[in-house]
Design a binder for these strands. Structure first.
Length: 484
DNA sequence: ATGTCC
């Protein structure tokens, strides 16, 4: 303990933690970062967590850290770990507490010039339409039977209930629904928590932002995605499964912890507690995780409907729902069964992505047909004061990172440190000065999400671009921020 | 992230 973790430089963007560091490691670690980002990573406990994850039973390839990596529960946020789907384990801590936390981006027909006179009105409208804050009820209260339908059918349920359009599902990862969701594995308490929260933003780093396309890296790809005009207004939603994801995670972390001895696991950190994928317990977690994931997709579908209503209310016929097409929806806290070549052999793997986005390259069958020639859209929100990015998956992700890349800027300061660094009032003034209109439910939480609490998202996306995991398409600047 | 402690 306390010993410096060795990092072997591979190239400008990659660093390896060799297996010789620790006898318990089954695979080496691999960190994606440039010279500057690696400094902040080394000063965090995240590297030790990459080492810990490398000791998981059945892990293959590398224990991976993306450039936005930072300390998390057991597994780092910004981490990817693949285990053998037949003989390996699944660890609830490797998915995280906010199951299927994710991001979706809607395009509009509007240019910033058409919107700038109504920014304040739009901010109010969005804030009043999208329920936000800790413990708030959602746009729709469900019966227990409806809740079960949401858990099984995901975003499709929302479309059938009148929220959004059928074509939205085509541009949602997994079409907004994972197969194998099993409501019988979700506790009554978890179901009860979710029942009241469908269509709610939540708190913390969750948000709705109106943004403007401010730089185009790849005009051709941007055109295919429908975001190819400089000055074009788009809207990004970032949120997850609210209370149900948290409850499912907590219950299965406790279950896994209580069964480590029974399954014969002796893990270096109890927060890595895991279950054999091929066990009743492992399958139960997967069934419940998928229920929470499907809830999250329905949740984002309802919120998006609220965004479309808000724009229509303010801009009338210039912003009808069909004029605000969903570009794409990605999840970044999830485990998926996917096939990859490992040492020349095609293997079925359980890919844990915790604060990591799927980034399938052009040609992959899981990509919607209209985007297949350019790659899967990858949405990378930055911080509320600077910028966010849209990328598309690149081929290197299949060879290096089990089809994955980063998910955001990555936290640089703890919530406590962030609060010390800047006051809420000062931060609000700073954002307004930059032309960003903010509506926040709980003003005393704003400092925790200040731009300086995060790494520079530009640096983070440059690394995944240069490493061949995803390709830069456009940069977006925030004009309206609505938060819990 | 989270009914920020059942």
């Amino acid at each position: 303990m306390g010993e410096k973790i060795p990092l072997e430089r591979i190239d400008a963007n990659r660093w390896r933690i060799p297996m010789r560091y620790n006898d318990d490691m089954h695979v080496p670690g691999m960190i994606y970062a440039d010279d500057e980002l690696i400094e902040s990573i080394v000063n965090d406990n995240a590297l030790q967590q990459v080492v810990n994850v490398a000791t998981l039973p059945g892990i293959v390839g590398h224990s991976l850290g993306m450039p936005d990596i930072h300390w998390g529960y057991g597994f780092p946020v910004g981490g990817v770990a693949a285990t053998d789907a037949e003989t390996g384990v699944i660890s609830p801590g490797g998915i995280g507490f906010d199951i299927n936390c994710g991001v979706r981006l809607l395009a509009t027909d509007l240019l910033y010039d058409q919107v700038k006179g109504k920014v304040s009105e739009l901010a109010d409208q969005l804030y009043n339409t999208l329920p936000s804050g800790v413990g708030t009820d959602g746009m729709r209260i469900l019966s227990a039977d409806e809740m079960r339908d949401v858990m099984v059918h995901g975003a499709q349920w929302a479309v059938d209930a009148g929220y959004g359009l059928a074509e939205d599902l085509e541009v949602t990862e997994e079409n907004g629904c994972l197969e194998g969701a099993d409501p019988s594995t979700v506790s009554k308490h978890a179901l009860e928590r979710g029942r009241k929260q469908l269509g709610s933003l939540g708190s913390g780093n969750h948000f709705c932002e109106v943004q403007v396309v401010d730089h185009i890296y790849d005009q051709e790809v941007a055109n295919v995605l429908g975001i190819g005009r400089k000055g074009q207004v788009v809207t990004t939603l970032h949120c997850g499964s609210r209370g149900i994801g948290h409850q499912v995670a907590e219950e299965f972390i406790n279950l896994a912890e209580s069964k480590q001895k029974e399954y014969g696991f002796e893990l270096v950190d109890k927060q890595l507690a895991c279950l054999p994928i091929n066990s009743v317990d492992g399958q139960a977690y997967l069934g419940a995780m998928r229920c929470a994931a499907n809830f999250a997709w329905a949740n984002r579908q309802l919120l998006m409907h609220g965004v479309r209503q808000s724009f229509a209310n303010i801009f009338g016929r210039k912003a009808r729902p069909k004029d605000l097409p969903l570009v794409y929806d990605v999840c970044h806290n999830i485990a998926k069964m996917e096939e990859y070549e490992v040492d020349g052999q095609l293997r079925k793997l359980c890919v844990h992505r915790k604060g990591a986005t799927r980034s399938f390259p052009a040609g992959h069958p899981a990509i919607p047909e209209k985007y297949r020639a350019v790659g899967q859209p990858v949405l990378i929100p930055g911080d509320m004061g600077r910028y966010s990015f849209m990328l598309v998956g690149d081929h290197g992700s299949m060879e290096q990172t089990f089809g994955s890349c980063c998910h955001g800027a990555g936290r640089r300061l703890s919530r406590t440190a962030a609060k010390k660094a800047i006051g809420n009032k000062e931060l609000l003034e700073l954002l307004e000065k930059r032309g960003i209109t903010v509506r926040v439910h709980s003003k005393n939480l704003l400092s925790e999400e200040s731009p300086q609490a995060y790494k520079d998202a530009q640096q983070v996306v440059n690394v995944v671009h240069n490493a061949g995991l995803a390709k830069l398409v456009v940069r977006l600047k925030p004009v309206v921020v609505v938060k819990g």
